[in-house]
Design a protein around this nucleic acid. Structure first.
Lengths: 192, 192
DNA sequence: AAACAAACAGTCAAGACTGCTTGTTTTGCA
DNA sequence: TGCAAAACAAGCAGTCTTGACTGTTTGTTT
């Protein structure tokens, strides 16, 4: 295997392990030692690719954003057309905001609040991701943002999903969420 | 000063310092040493009142819930009557979900996801707080929950605010939030 | 083939955090 | 007043985490 490819593979294992560790052990449980062990990479190799913990986590966050976008794009391709499409879009987004990748992102998000270095790196990234998410939602819904109120409706949908994701952190909130989203879908249909 | 009162005072200082520390340094920055130092309490005295870190944090969370409820009740008393009341209620709740106390709660909330002990203590507490928050909102709005859709509208409002609180963690989101809430208030008025 | 560079492995020292132990002061009651 | 108990202070041991160091293997280039 060429060096370059080997490097990529090792880095990918480290980033995957970091995300997995965030999901399973949370931010403070995500230590460099544990990540290296999970990735099956020696500490030396880890430090070679990512000299500091911050660099590892920031790379993992980028990786995370790519994976989230990829998942959404993949699922979006399978969405039904017609009047049931709105339902499908909201359900898909809801699953994106309750899945493990969102949890990992939230861990980093909260930790970055009090970590200047992380925060500086994360703010522009998440701004990009947020805009992209908004754009994608508008596109998937086939909505016209020039119509007054549509932009706010899309934003409200995404912020609502963020909140539902938080509510789902500790206890499984699926039944309440499903019922709530059913009502919201009806509202949303009248707003677009 | 009587012993009992002295104890209470020391405990209060410790709990306040814990919350303050959560806000300023986040979960992983909230160490027992720092809390004791901030509270102006010796480590020995700290361990005397709260033998473990978990017991300290759990007590702080209870304290936190009480303070949040107290703040809301206080502000609620100053709400205007009439048609502007809905605006006032939403604004008040919004400030509750973007203030430092919500931030502290979120830190603990996220940390508890991967901490079995904290989680076990937190789930029932937050269920209570959540129900109380819902009930209070209904009451403040003067809404009739028997009307179909009203219950969902209130829940959606609270979940939306949760999400807006998260979005406000890293960068100040006030202008976007204000605009969004203005639209939300109009929608809400038609639903109640 | 030889020299060089990159990737990797394993160990170590410094610092930090938690919880415990020992000693001192303050309070309440006899 | 004198004594027991609670509250408080301070320091210590064990563990964990981080980042650095030294040496080895693998791949590339000349």
């Amino acid at each position: 295997m060429p060096q370059q490819e080997r490097s990529r593979a090792t880095q990918a294992r480290l980033l995957e392990a970091t995300v997995e560790c965030l999901v399973e052990r949370g931010w403070s449980g995500t230590t460099t030692t544990v990540v290296a062990s999970m990735a099956g990479v020696s500490r030396g190799a880890q430090l070679h690719h990512y000299p500091t913990k911050a660099s590892l986590v920031m790379a993992a966050v980028e990786h995370l954003a790519e994976r989230r976008a990829e998942e959404i794009r993949k699922e979006a391709a399978a969405l039904p057309p017609g009047p049931r499409r709105l339902d499908g879009v909201v359900d898909m987004l809801a699953s994106a905001f309750t899945g493990p990748l969102y949890v990992a992102a939230l861990e980093v998000w909260v930790a970055a609040r009090t970590d200047a270095e992380l925060r500086a790196a994360l703010v522009p990234l998440e701004a990009r991701v947020g805009r992209e998410m908004h754009r994608l939602t508008v596109e998937l819904l086939g909505a016209d943002e020039r119509t007054p109120g549509v932009r706010e409706a899309v934003q409200a949908t995404l912020d609502l999903l963020r909140g539902l994701g938080v509510a789902n952190l500790l206890s499984d909130d699926t039944t309440r969420r499903t019922a709530l989203l059913a009502a919201w879908k009806r509202q949303l249909a009248t707003l677009l």
